[in-house]
Amino acid sequence: MITSPYEKYKQSSVQTSTPAQLLIMLYDGAIRFIRGAVEAINAEDIQKKNELIGKAQAIVSELRATLNHSYEISAQLDKLYEYINYLLIEANIRKDAAKATEAVDYLVDLRESWIQASKVVISGQEQVNSNG
């Protein structure tokens, strides 16, 4: 049972979001977890590093699992997500903040691309709605 106002807000936010907004939320979560893992690596907090990288890997796995393979770009995204997961494994095993930072860089770029794409879609929908 959700009791805190913040949890209620989060649940409502997820339930009322568009697919593009949900995707951006996933990117935000993965980026936040990996940045936290970098801090944990630098602080030599192994347990926190493991936990945060595990959460980021779960998100990347979800991103891979939900790809629609009827589009050509999905194969390219799948390979990129696979590489990001590899970077996270390496960062975790080797306690390598640079590998984690590289993974964040890819996710930030993907996030920005999806934000731009969603703006184009919204703009197109507004034009269709205003014309007819």
Rank of each mutant, 00 (worst) to 15 (best):
V108I: 08
L67K: 09
K55D: 13
E102W: 10
I93F: 11
K119P: 07
A91L: 01
D45R: 13
S13F: 05
T16L: 10
V121R: 12
I84A: 01
T66I: 11
V14C: 08
Y71C: 06
R111V: 02
Y6Q: 15
A56W: 05
S113P: 07
I53A: 04
I59A: 01
K95D: 10
N68D: 14
K99H: 11
L22N: 02
A56C: 01
V38D: 09
L22Q: 03
V121S: 11
Y27F: 10
Y83G: 00
M25C: 09
K95L: 12
D78P: 14
L110V: 07
I122H: 12
R32A: 15
Y6H: 13
Q116F: 01
K79H: 12
S74C: 02
P5R: 08
L87C: 12
E39S: 08
G36R: 01
I31S: 05
A100F: 03
S118R: 08
N92S: 10
Y27L: 09
G54W: 05
L26G: 00
K10R: 12
K48I: 14
Q21G: 06
D105K: 13
I122T: 14
I59D: 01
Q57M: 10
L22S: 05
R64H: 14
D28T: 09
L52V: 07
L107P: 01
I59M: 03
Q125S: 12
N129D: 14
I31Y: 00
A43L: 11
L23R: 11
A100R: 06
D109Q: 13
V14E: 09
H69Q: 10
Q15Y: 04
M25N: 05
S70P: 03
L87V: 07
V60W: 01
A58Q: 12
E51G: 09
I31H: 02
A75W: 12
H69I: 12
A91M: 01
S13W: 04
Y27E: 05
Q15N: 12
A91D: 03
N50E: 15
R32I: 13
G36T: 01
A56V: 02
K48P: 10
A40F: 00
R32F: 15
E51F: 13
A30T: 06
L63K: 00
L77N: 03
K95Q: 15
A43R: 14
I59L: 03
S17E: 06
I31T: 04
M1E: 09
R111Q: 11
A97D: 08
L23A: 12
L67A: 03
K49S: 03
T18H: 00
L80S: 02
Y9V: 10
Y106S: 04
V104Y: 00
Y83S: 04
K10W: 03
L22I: 15
Y83I: 05
D109T: 09
E90I: 05
S12R: 13
T66H: 07
I24C: 02
E82D: 15
L88D: 04
I93C: 06
T16Y: 11
E62T: 09
P5Q: 11
E72C: 08
T66W: 08
R32H: 15
L107W: 08
Y83N: 04
E44A: 11
L107T: 00
Q11P: 00
M1A: 11
S123W: 04
I73W: 00
Q57V: 08
V128L: 13
R111N: 07
D28Y: 04
S74G: 03
N131P: 10
N129T: 13
Y6K: 14
M25G: 09
G132Y: 14
I122K: 14
N42P: 06
Y106K: 07
